[in-house]
Amino acid sequence: MGLSEELVLPISRPSKGASGRTGVWRVFKPVIDLQKCVKCWQCWLLCPEETILADDVPKVDYDYCKGCGVCAKVCPTKAITMVEERE
């Protein structure tokens, strides 16, 4: 039986930005010093929002990074610093 249009479900499929540009929530911004980065990919692995992009080097997707600071905390060479956002 086909489902009617009147069935509106609280269901979403995984898609980028389903909850809007969450990067605007950020207070502190992770900045990566590529001189110190050893490409261990711990930041990529542990980012809870999957906003560290694995290019040749790690890169932050600032549209969706909420600035939680997990990447800076786990970085073994302290290559990531949290910088306060300013207007």
Partner: peptide
């Protein structure tokens, strides 16, 4: 075929439509 149930919904999104849908049921 992963789905997410009950994710955050803003006023301009379909929260009110979902409440209406319960009444249709």
């Amino acid at each position: 075929n992963p789905v997410d149930m009950g994710n955050l919904t803003m006023p301009e999104e379909e929260y009110m439509e979902m409440r209406w849908s319960i009444e249709r049921g």
